[in-house]
Write a protein that binds this DNA or RNA. Structure first.
Length: 950
RNA sequence: GCCAGAGUGGCGGAAUUGGUAGACGCACUGGACUCAAAAUCCAGCGUUCGCAAGGAUGUGCGGGUUCGAGUCCCGCCUCUGGUACCA
């Protein structure tokens, strides 16, 4: 039989489908194993060669685990709600539901091509009402719960209400946006509206007016992790701060558990560090400063350095701190107003640029230093943030660079309080030094002083120990159409009413105009009938953000069709949690943080049995593309665009701001990806056909300046860079094309052979021939050049046993540690060896096929059938190595003197160490070296080496 | 700035616990087969001295520990990622 990938793949895909080979059910007779991929967002560009990298790895692992006797859940689905489909709808008028479905069809075809072992009967789509019904349900649970810090878990809001009725706020120890004190009696006489606004401070899903990241171009607000360097992650549009009524999730309530939970899971250290930094825990104290002569009583500041309190010479509040109005004196009112105005106008640009600022203004008020009683000025400034700590700081210019810069700018007093003269190369961050000018703390080390001051503050009721987190509550409203509607409505008073559980799903209505309204409201607000169904009732017209549906999808796979629950208890108890999660590191602070939060919440409510959703996580790297660009020289020649060959740039010293790079389609470029990538005459012709606006451009290369038609013969060099694979750069490589040419098995193995899967690397077709050759060699062990079946039932050669069992051992170890490239290397060694010795015995070749099966499912299935097996190789048992074939009959030891190899001896296996030592010392060349030397010791490492130390 | 990770041939990368550095693949060079090409097979392939046998040297740089260091320690350099007025 001839090796013909395409027919072979079609044949087996059809057989697997007909036999439901990869369908999985809860089977208590086998141990479970859950392998999950991060489900894709079905974008219009389709899958490129980078996407399947993680999928191939997880598929190999799934197939391996199945052959090892595990009941493997390996599902796939689509993160179908999201911005790009809506942007596409804005541009083309195509309904997002339609384009998303079309994209999903395309993705499915591409995924099927690669031969994955997904159980497609469990597919989920986040935009399916039967799915988002449960997203809405979980949202309602969040709304109906608060976080009780004493119990350290989420509790029903009804218990909070009973506490309020019993004793007001005094017994409540809960995560809250604000603590307004009140008694039980006061609570009882509050109006429903007043009570509701108090409860909103506690609910895990709550509404508040807050400043949010507003992106004008996208017409929506974004969560903190969706903003990068002041620009939207999607699209790269500017983001400004804006006040809006928004839904938020109280993820901060779980900050500590999100932090400690990381000790129990197997994630890479770097990923854990990213999450830890994002949570940003720091220990310190709240300290109360009372005012000297103001209507306001006191202000709380947060500090991690209570020891520096004697150096505190002024206070600084955030510009939008709640006390600013109350403490501003009449004489300073104008100054403060001017500053607030300026600060507001500035926030848009400078916060984008990330510049440091020492701008500020004095409120006219004085506070009293809590220890010395000195009068100190209270300022407001840009560099203090409302959202961190208490939004107010005690400024210690003597030991804080920002405070110092501010003090110098505004000529405020500075007191040196840390003596660093004993330290070499010490900076403020080092926390090294001795206290001075600090009353009873003088002479203490910083650590000792912190402890002493904390005790002092608590004893004198001046402050409390406190832990602050950088983590902010997650914004949960998007002024967008293509997302889950909120299952709530508002009455005439603006009070929130939950929808009945039985009325879910609250479906997304149809729409044909997707433009957001300029005032920042969702397109849904335009649907009068839907938005205001009856007088006095209005619906929430915002929708949930992209991460809503993806925060729990892994649970739905356990029981995807369930109508009565997000998954049955039976299914959840069987599948428990995800054993292995494979996906990109770009989700470190978004999806992975929110999923853990939702999962912990569901755990508190008793719906899931484990606290953490993902036991082990592997981050696959990104496969990058090569971006080829033409350099456009902006100084135009006779009004014509001037392109310049890239090698001239260095020699001509053209200022880089006069150059811009125009990405070119890689198919135009010759020697693409190489240092000598260039366009020849036909490439230039193709380029001009594609970008006709450059038809009259001039092209400057080493030989001179030409118009396109004069350019025959001259090579025009492009600029080659490694970058993202993206439609924009015209460098997307479609897996379908690779599979068409080399077959799915080859594509899978080559993706794995590129290097460790955690690593990012550029896609490069150069090496794929090596894998292709390997598969042909494998095939040739079974069929000769005349396509005759060569496998015999003869006894194999002993050396074949040896190489086979070494390969079995290594394959098991390598798959377990996710080192697929080294496993493939071993297959190559094995196949080469078997070919060299012309091994044709089924005893050897049969297990070899099984070993390679997870990597190359199609070709191995075919060979397995040809070997006479009635059932699939993917249902067979993974080979186990036999130690007896791995024991050496003899072993050649390198004999070293002081670690340098001088000779070697070959001795029988299991030779006692004293004989090895004696034999080593008898070697003539060694004796020559040892002459006149004293042997200090002899080190023998079994099966490794003999080292004589002189 | 701070935090984390990484630097190995012409290239992608091996070396699992401190034990013969460069596995495996690509590229390249030479040879066989062929009228020729492709395909296939064989051999070579860090640097350096040498006709060779063989020697020296070599894992970003400078030190150290050790019989022995790509691997451990100290000090630097470079790159990648995260983060940035976080008190």
């Amino acid at each position: 039989m001839k090796l013909d990938y395409n027919t072979l793949e079609a044949k087996w895909k059809q057989i697997w489908e007909a036999n439901q080979l990869y369908k999985v059910t809860e089977d208590t007779s086998k141990p479970k194993f859950y392998v999950l991929d991060m489900f894709p967002y079905p974008s219009g560009a389709g899958l490129h060669v980078g996407h399947p990298l993680g999928y191939v790895a997880s598929d190999i692992y799934s197939r391996y685990k199945r052959m090892k006797g595990f009941n493997v859940l390996h599902p796939m689905g689509y993160d179908a709600f999201g911005l790009p489909a809506e942007q596409y709808a804005l541009d083309t008028g195509v309904h997002p539901a339609k384009s998303t479905s079309e994209n999903i069809t395309r993705y499915r075809a591409q995924l099927d091509n690669i031969g994955f072992s997904f159980d497609w009967s469990r597919q989920v789509r986040t935009d399916d009402p039967s799915y988002y019904r449960w997203t809405q349900w979980i949202f309602l649970q969040l709304y109906q719960h608060y976080y009780d810090k004493s119990a350290d878990k989420a509790m029903p809001i009804t218990s909070l209400i009973s506490l309020f009725e019993k004793s007001g706020i005094s017994d409540v120890h809960a995560a809250a946006s604000a603590h307004t004190p009140f008694s039980a009696d006061i609570w009882k006489v509050m109006s429903a509206k007043e009570q509701e606004s108090i409860l909103m401070n506690y609910r895990l899903a709550y509404r508040k007016v807050g400043h949010v990241n507003w992106c004008e171009a996208l017409g929506t607000v974004l969560a903190n992790d969706e903003v990068k360097d002041g620009l939207s992650e999607r699209g790269g549009f500017p983001v400004i701060q804006k006040e809006m009524m928004q839904w938020s999730l109280r993820v901060t309530a779980y900050a500590e558990r999100l932090l400690t939970g990381m000790d129990t899971i197997q994630w890479s250290e770097s990923l854990k560090t990213i999450q830890r930094n994002w949570i940003g825990r720091s220990e310190g104290a709240f300290i109360d400063f009372s005012f000297a002569d103001s209507t306001a009583k006191s202000v709380k500041v947060f500090t991690t350095r209570p020891d520096t309190i004697f150096g505190c010479t002024f206070l600084v509040l955030a510009a939008d701190h709640e006390l600013v109005n109350a403490i501003t004196t009449a004489s300073q009112q104008e100054t403060i107003n001017a500053f607030l105005e300026k600060s507001k106008a500035k926030s848009a640009e400078t916060k984008v640029a990330g510049q440091k600022s020492t701008d500020g203004a004095w409120t006219g008020s004085y506070a009293l230093h809590p220890v010395t009683g000195d009068k100190i000025q209270v300022w407001i400034a840009d560099y203090v943030l409302r959202d961190y700590g208490t939004g107010a700081i005690m400024a210690v210019p003597g030991d804080d660079e920002r405070d110092l810069a501010f003090a110098i700018q505004h000529q405020l007093p500075v007191v040196e309080i840390i003596d660093r003269s004993a330290e070499v190369n010490s900076s403020i961050e080092d926390k090294q030094g001795i206290l001075m000018n600090s009353s009873f703390l003088n002479g203490r080390s910083i650590d000792a002083a912190i402890a002493e001051m904390l005790a002092y503050l608590e004893k004198n009721k001046l402050g409390t120990r406190q832990i602050a987190y950088r983590l902010r509550d997650a914004n949960f409203s998007r002024q967008r159409y293509w997302g889950e509607p909120f299952p709530v409505y508002y009455d005439a008073d603006g009070l929130v009413h939950e929808m009945e559980e039985s009325s879910l799903p609250h479906t997304l209505p149809d729409l044909d105009d997707f433009k957001p309204s300029p005032d920042g409201r969702s397109p849904l607000a335009r649907l009068d009938q839907w938005a205001r169904p009856t007088p006095g009732v209005s619906r929430e017209t915002d929708t949930m953000p992209g991460y809503a549906g993806s925060s729990w999808y892994f649970l739905r796979y356990m029981d995807p069709l369930n109508q009565n629950a997000f998954a049955s208890t039976r299914a959840i108890n069987y599948w428990q949690d995800v054993d292995l999660y494979v996906g990109g590191v770009e989700h470190a602070v978004g999806h992975l943080m929110y999923s853990r939060f939702w999962h912990k919440f569901l755990y508190d409510l008793g719906y899931v049995p484990t606290e953490e959703p993902f036991k082990k996580l592997v981050n696959q790297g990104m496969i990058q593309g090569v971006v080829e660009s033409l350099l456009l020289f902006k100084e135009r020649t006779n009004g014509k665009a001037h392109f310049i060959s890239s090698e001239l740039v260095a020699s001509r010293e053209i200022p880089s701001d006069l150059l811009s790079a125009i990405p070119v389609h890689i198919s135009f470029v010759t020697a693409y990806g190489q240092p000598s990538s260039h366009l020849d005459a036909s490439g230039i012709e193709a380029f001009l056909k594609w970008r006709p606006e450059y038809a009259d451009a001039v092209f400057e290369c080493a030989d001179g300046i030409f118009s396109a038609t004069e350019l025959n013969g001259a090579l025009f060099y492009t600029l080659s860079e490694v970058g993202k694979m993206s439609k924009r750069y015209h460098n997307v490589v479609n897996p379908d094309d690779v599979i068409e040419k080399y077959g799915a098995d080859c594509f899978r193995m080559y993706e794995m052979f590129l290097g460790p899967i955690e690593q990012s690397k550029p896609w490069d077709m150069m090496g794929i021939e090596g894998i292709s050759k390997f598969l042909r060699k494998l095939w040739s062990l079974f069929y000769n050049d005349q396509d005759e079946w060569m496998v015999t039932q003869d006894a194999p050669k002993e050396t074949s046993h040896k190489i086979l069992h070494a390969t079995i051992k290594k394959t098991n170890e390598d798959i377990e540690r996710f080192s697929f490239n080294t496993a493939i290397s071993q297959f190559m060694i094995c196949v080469n060896e078997l070919r060299r010795t012309e091994e044709r015995s089924a005893t050897i070749l049969s297990p070899l096929v099984q070993l390679i099966a997870p990597f190359a499912p199609f070709i191995t299935e075919q060979l397995w059938q040809a070997l006479g097996n009635a059932t699939s190789v993917h249902r067979s048992e993974f080979p186990i190595h036999d130690e007896k074939w791995l024991v050496n009959n003899s072993f050649t030891y390198p004999v070293c003197i002081n670690g340098k190899k001088r000779s070697e001896i070959t001795l029988a296996a299991g030779t006692p160490n004293n004989i090895i030592e004696a034999s080593a010392k008898e070697l003539p060349d060694i004796i020559k070296w040892l002459e006149g030397q004293t042997i200090k010791k002899v080190i023998i490492i079994p099966e490794k080496m003999v080292n004589i130390v002189i």
